[in-house]
Write a protein that binds this DNA or RNA. Structure first.
Lengths: 226, 226
DNA sequence: TTGTCGGCCGATCGCCGACAA
DNA sequence: TTGTCGGCGATCGGCCGACAA
């Protein structure tokens, strides 16, 4: 996925991804501790080495096909302790300037958003900042538009401005989205508007409950010790 | 699963399972041809051997956890061409006599049985032979009873005798069963009454359509060439 | 501004007997 | 005997504004 989407979805609590060619320490023990399954046939040397000097040779951005959660794959190459530095390479897309800009708005789903009654309260500033404006703000004519998730799948929603007091709502299409993505209250949606006005949506699952079950990590390190 | 249930579910078109210690030919080519995936790292010797003399060292009866379909695992041991025979061992349970007896009734599901309206027409002879009798045949008081599938899971059904003309029907609980087992018209249910009156149910899927898709076989041979 | 809820209407579910194959 | 279907009541889905937080 594009790094700009990764940044918007990862949130401010996530570390910045490392720069290519920067030098880092890799801690095998820490990696093993956090792995879902004990690696097999690992050299005993690995267990006796506290850390390894490495160079970041690639950083790639992904979204989990099942959960939509974003993560990194960081390719590391071991280097001799005193080898000379390589010039750091900033993210290619980052140099382009404008197309890295993404307007984004994150909302934590309320109980009403995620219940089985099928509606979503669109925060006012989110509607104004991200979503295409309704044809006439005063009318309550609904209109449909579509958002694209991080895998490129489009989702249709009916967008209407109604109620007393008036507010933006998603109705038809919303329940299908909640059910398909298995969203629950407490999860966060990140709405992102690309420079061409296209809207994308990412998901940040609520990790405060059901912790330690899935053995999943937001950042997957390693690869490169072929 | 008990061999008596396997027999009832496999139907008359299936071969009888082989007797333990009987001598058979194993055809590696035929097995490879029918396998879902090409085996890796197979000795070239296997490809050049048309068949192998074997002794049946074990026959085990299973039901697929997902589809409920029954199958065998037959353990073969290669023997030298002229080795002496072992005394054939009939199935242990078969010697016991009575507890091998199972009354069974098979019904192919009609369109009405498998549609989304949630009812099942119980054939008269099936109701009389297999299911516990209703408290009073004349009344239309419904009663619930449960059947157990081949994995030991119990399923509750409402059994009622009604309509003009009167007939046995399953109502409440039936749709849940159809949906859970993903049954379609043309599939066959096998109802089996054990000697203690407990009712079991097996499934034979309709193989005449969607053939050659799943790479599944009713009889899985091999194992034993460690 | 926005989360929750009672009301309400339409769609669907699933039980019923009628009827015919 | 039993497969299919129209009828129907009950339930559910999902859109609405009211109202309060």
């Amino acid at each position: 996925i594009p790094p700009k989407f990764w940044r918007a979805c990862a949130g401010i609590s996530a570390q910045e991804p490392p720069i290519v060619n920067s030098r880092v320490y890799y801690f095998p023990q820490g990696h093993i501790d956090q792995a879902a399954s004990e690696p097999q046939n690992l050299s005993p040397l690995v267990y006796s080495t506290p850390f390894i000097h490495c160079r970041v040779s690639a950083v790639n951005f992904f979204a989990d096909p099942n959960t939509d959660e974003v993560f990194l794959k960081i390719l590391l190459r071991p280097v001799a302790g005193l080898a000379q530095d390589f010039p750091p390479i900033a993210d290619a897309a980052e140099g382009n300037g404008d197309d890295e800009k993404v307007e984004s708005y994150a909302k934590v789903l309320s109980l009403s958003d995620a219940d089985n009654r099928g509606g979503f309260s669109v925060p006012k500033s989110c509607a104004e900042m991200i979503f295409p404006p309704l044809n006439s703000e005063d009318e309550i004519l609904p209109q449909t538009f579509s958002m694209t998730d991080l895998h490129g799948t489009a989702w249709e929603f009916r967008h209407i401005y109604r109620g007393t007091p008036k507010r933006h709502l998603f109705t038809t299409g919303w329940k299908n989205f909640v059910d398909s993505k298995i969203l629950i209250s407490g999860d966060t949606l990140i709405f992102m508007k690309d420079t061409d006005g296209k809207v994308f949506v990412g998901i940040r699952r609520n990790m405060s409950l059901d912790e330690g079950e899935k053995g999943k990590e937001e950042v997957v390190m390693s690869e490169g010790f072929a």
